[in-house]
C-alpha cells in the first residue's frame, strides 16, 4: 500500500509542473509584448517598464521560468497590478466564503445525488429512473447563473423567504450563514448533482449486472444489503473519480455563482481581475485552484486503496 501511495503522490508532481509550464507559457506565447498585453492600450512607458521588471521579462525565457518557479515554490505568486498587494494575500483574504460555500455544496451534492443515482439504477426503466435522468439533463443544460436568478426570483423575491444576495461568515452563527449560503450552494450544486447522479446511476447499473450481485441475491440477502454493501461499494471508485474530476466544474461554477449572489470570495476576485486585466492575480488563481484540484484528486486516488483491496495489494 505504501508503494501505491508513494507512486500516486509522485505522479501528482508532473501534473502540477505541466500546469505551471502552461500558465507560464500562456503569457509568453501570446502574440505581442507581454507587458503591453497586461497593461492594456492606455499604459504609459513607465507602467510598461514596471511590469517588465516585476515579471522579469528582460531575461532569457528559461531564466525567467526558473526564477518564476523558484518564486512560486517560496510562496511568492507575484503582486497584483491593480492593488499592489501580494496575490497570496488577496487569495487568502477571499478564501473563507468560497471554501464554506464549496463544502456546503459538496455536502448537498452527495446527500442528494448518490441516493438519486442508486434509486434510478435499482428501478431501471421506471418513472423514477426517467425523472432522475430528466432532472440530470436539465441540470446539465441550464446555465448556472440562470438557475441562480430563478432561485433568487422564487425564494427571495416572490416568497421573500431568504435574503437576495450577500454572505455571512459561519463564525457569526450557523443560521445566518445558511440563510445566505443555501441558495448559492444549491445553484452551484445543480450541475454537480446532475453529473454525479448520472455517474452513480451508470456505475450502479454496471455493478448490478455483475455475477456477485446475483450471488448475493442467491444467498437470500436483503435487497438493501445487496444494494449498499455489495453494489455501491463496488461502484464507489468510479463515483469518487467523477466527484474529483467534477471539482473543476464546481470551481468554474463558483466564479459565476459568487458574482450572481454577490459573495466576496475567490470567484469575485476572478471577475474583478478579469475586468482590470490583472494578469498576476488570474495566474495566481489558476495555479491555486489547479493545485487544489490536483490535491483533491490525489486524496481520492489514495482513498481507492481503502475501497478496493485489489489496489491495496
Amino acid at each position: 500500500m505504501f508503494g501505491y501511495f508513494l507512486r500516486r503522490i509522485l505522479a501528482a508532481i508532473p501534473v502540477m509542473a505541466v500546469v505551471a509550464l502552461f500558465v507560464f507559457l500562456l503569457l509568453r506565447l501570446t502574440p505581442g509584448d507581454p507587458a503591453a498585453i497586461i497593461a492594456g492600450d492606455m499604459a504609459t512607458p513607465e507602467q510598461l517598464e514596471r511590469i517588465r521588471v516585476t515579471l522579469g521579462l528582460h531575461q532569457p525565457i528559461h531564466v525567467q521560468f526558473i526564477t518564476w518557479v523558484q518564486r512560486l515554490l517560496s510562496g511568492d505568486f507575484g503582486v497584483s497590478l491593480l492593488s499592489n498587494k501580494p496575490v497570496t494575500t488577496l487569495i487568502s483574504q477571499r478564501l473563507e466564503p468560497t471554501i464554506s460555500l464549496a463544502l456546503l455544496t459538496i455536502f448537498l451534492t452527495i446527500i442528494i445525488s448518490v441516493p438519486m443515482g442508486v434509486l434510478a439504477a435499482w428501478r431501471h426503466g421506471s418513472w423514477i429512473d426517467n425523472m432522475v435522468m430528466s432532472a440530470s439533463v436539465l441540470g446539465f443544460s441550464i446555465p448556472v447563473f440562470v438557475i441562480g436568478y430563478i432561485l433568487i426570483q422564487i425564494f427571495a423575491l416572490n416568497l421573500g423567504l431568504l435574503p437576495v444576495q450577500g454572505f455571512t461568515s459561519i463564525s457569526k452563527g450557523v443560521v445566518p450563514f445558511l440563510e445566505r449560503a443555501i441558495l448559492p450552494a444549491l445553484t452551484l450544486a445543480s450541475i454537480y448533482i446532475a453529473l454525479i447522479a448520472r455517474m452513480t446511476r451508470a456505475a450502479m447499473l454496471d455493478v448490478l449486472g455483475e455475477d456477485y450481485v446475483r450471488t448475493a441475491r442467491a444467498k437470500g440477502l436483503d435487497e438493501k444489503i445487496v444494494l449498499f454493501r455489495h453494489a455501491l461499494r463496488n461502484a464507489a471508485v468510479p463515483i469518487l473519480t467523477v466527484i474529483g474530476t467534477g471539482f473543476a466544474l464546481m470551481i468554474s461554477g463558483v466564479v459565476v455563482t459568487e458574482s450572481v449572489f454577490n459573495i466576496p470570495g475567490l470567484g469575485r476576485l476572478t471577475v474583478d481581475a478579469i475586468l482590470a486585466r490583472d494578469y498576476p492575480v488570474i495566474q495566481g488563481l489558476i495555479l491555486f485552484t489547479s493545485g487544489i484540484y490536483v490535491l483533491i484528486n490525489l486524496l481520492i486516488d489514495l482513498s481507492y486503496a481503502f475501497l478496493d483491496p485489489r489496489i491495496r495489494y
Binding site: 501534473v15 502540477m16 505541466v18 500546469v19 509550464l21 468554474s252 459565476v256 488570474i282 490536483v294
Partner: peptide, 13 residues
Amino acid sequence: GLMAIPSILLAIA
C-alpha cells in the same frame, strides 16, 4: 495538466 486547470479559468486567462 490541462485537465487540472478549471476550464473557465483557462478560458478567462
